[in-house]
Every structure is written in structure tokens, then in C-alpha cells.
Amino acid sequence: MSHPVELVQAVREGQRLALARLLSLIENEQPQGEAALSQLYPLTGRAYIVGVTGAPGTGKSSLVNEIAKALRAKIYPGLHASRPPGVAIVAVDPTSPFSGGAILGDRIRMRDLAGDAGVFVRSMASRGSLGGLAHTTSSVADALDAAGFEVVLIETVGAGQAEVDIARHAHTTLVIESPGMGDDIQAIKAGILEIADILVVNKADLPGAENAVRVLRAALDMAGNVGGAEAGWQVPILQAVATTGQGVQTVVESLLRHREYLQASGLWRERGQRRVAAALEARLRDRLAERWHAAQPDGRYRDILARIVRRELSPAVAVQEMLEDEPAPDAVERHPAERAGARR
């Protein structure tokens, strides 16, 4: 399986170890992974991609576990005609900014899914990304899509207010709240509530659940329901208790209803396109930065950085200079190799 072609073949045959290896290659941004994913790309675009986000401790992993269980329990004709849908889960946890290490603990809540060959759970560390996902999460989801899973659930890092990347990478975004998380001002701040297609108040057996629902409802009404953004979809606010499974079937039905709504309204295609555009733009940005770095004489970047630190140069002017390919005067003094370029 050392060659992308063999790897692709094995993934298409449903070999789980091959899939796991492919995901590692993608996550580590190895050329073989990119090559294999490029070959698999025509097979993507079929899975229903659901983002699950919310503050730490609201019960994202537990709810993802329950949603996956409910999906696996019966046939949903919209997802697969003759068997329960295959479900892949990508669970992202934060990377330590100090050590670069991470503890990926989402599986603790997903033990019910062990032993089911129709489920594949993969943990990912965010590896420095700040939007609640890892840099390669989208590509990992593509690989799982190509491997034939009908549903891909992406669980973000425990998110606060600004980690809204998931909305660009999923068809449907589920935002999980729990009672006692904040007052109505929290709810009308910009950010995570705005990206919700479906809101779930988890831990609904705790005191304050009704109040949380009311506050969220008021916030959504005030915002003219910007969350769903589109006319024709009223963002539902559901209650669930992930530890007992209460309310989970309703969440699943709501997901499927949203999927149908997306397809009927043409938004399915639009969101798919948004997803592709986001991935394309990120890749383009990376490659351009890489290419720029590679084309620079040794030390130029460091020198410019030093000048910014000394406040001799503002970041805005620095970037202008950098992109004009016009080495800064100081750098010319220090790097004779650059003079040729400057005189051009």
C-alpha cells in the first residue's frame, strides 16, 4: 500500500487500515496523501457533512455519540435506501500552544460506537489552527466522504464566540448549548449563534433548561433568525439529554429535515460550493506563502521582522514591500545578494 494508487484502491474496497493511513498522510500533509486524495476527489461531494460545535463541556461528544447511534439504528431512505447510513466522525481537540502536544479525549464519550463496522471515529488535534478545526479537517472529511460514509459528523474544538470556521465546512451546523451558560447578552453577541442551523440545549434535565431555550428563542427572534440566514428555515431550538438519549431522535429528524430543505432550496449546492471555495482559498494562501518564502534570499524575512519589532516599519508597509519584491533599503545593505534584484 505504499503507492497512492494502491492506497486509493484499498480505500475504495473499504479497507479500514488503508483509510486510517490515508487520513494520517493527509493530516501530516504528505505528498502521497495529497496524490491519493486527488485521485479520490471525483468520489467526494456525496456525504452529508454536519458540524457540531459549542462551548467546552456542553456535551458535544456525548451528543455526537448519540446521534451516530440513532443514525445507525435504522434506515433513513434519504441517506441510503437499504441499510443504515455509514457514519464517520472527526473529533477535533486543541493542540497545546506550548508543547505542540494534545490530549484527544472525545472517544471517551463514544465507546458505544465500538464494534460497529459502519462507524469510523478519528480524533484530530487542531495543530495551531484557531477557528475550531484543524487545517486539514476539511480534507480528512473529503477522504471519509470518498470512502463512502453517507454522514460525516465534524465535532469542533470546544468553541467560544469566534470559532465559526465549521459553518464554511459543513452542510448543516448544529450548535450545542447547555443551561446556565450565560445571560441574554451572551446570546445576542455575534458569532456562534449566528451560524446555527439547529440549536440544541443539551443537559435539558438540569434546572434552567427552559430558561435557556427562552433566551435563545428571544435572541433568534430579535436577530430576525439570521442563524439559518435563509427564508424558509426556522432555526429549531431542541432539548436533549445526551447521557440518556432523550430528545436525540428529534435532533436526528431535524438534521434530516434541514438536509431536505437544503436540497429543495438549492442551498445544498451553494453550501457545497462555499465549502470547496473555503478549502481552495486556504490551500492557495498556503501555497502562495510557501512559494514566497522559498523565493526569498536567506534572512530577508527575519530582517523585515526585526525592523517591525524595532518599530522602524509597520506590518502594512512591510507586506507592501515584501510583495513588491523590492528589498527594504536596510536589507540591501545587509544582503549583497539582493542588490541585483533591487537594481532591476
Binding site: 502536544g101 494534545a102 484527544l104 465500538a114 480524533s123
Partner: peptide, 19 residues
């Protein structure tokens, strides 16, 4: 191991060898 820069998947208690 996290502090040593590794990514550690922790599965919790009472796992079977199959899990």
C-alpha cells in the same frame, strides 16, 4: 506525553482488547 509534544488519544476506562 502531551507535554512532550505528542498527540495522545485517551479512551477512558474499561476498554476491551477489541475496543
Amino acid at each position: 506525553l502531551r507535554d512532550a509534544g505528542m498527540e495522545v488519544i485517551y479512551t477512558g476506562l474499561r476498554q476491551t482488547p477489541e475496543m
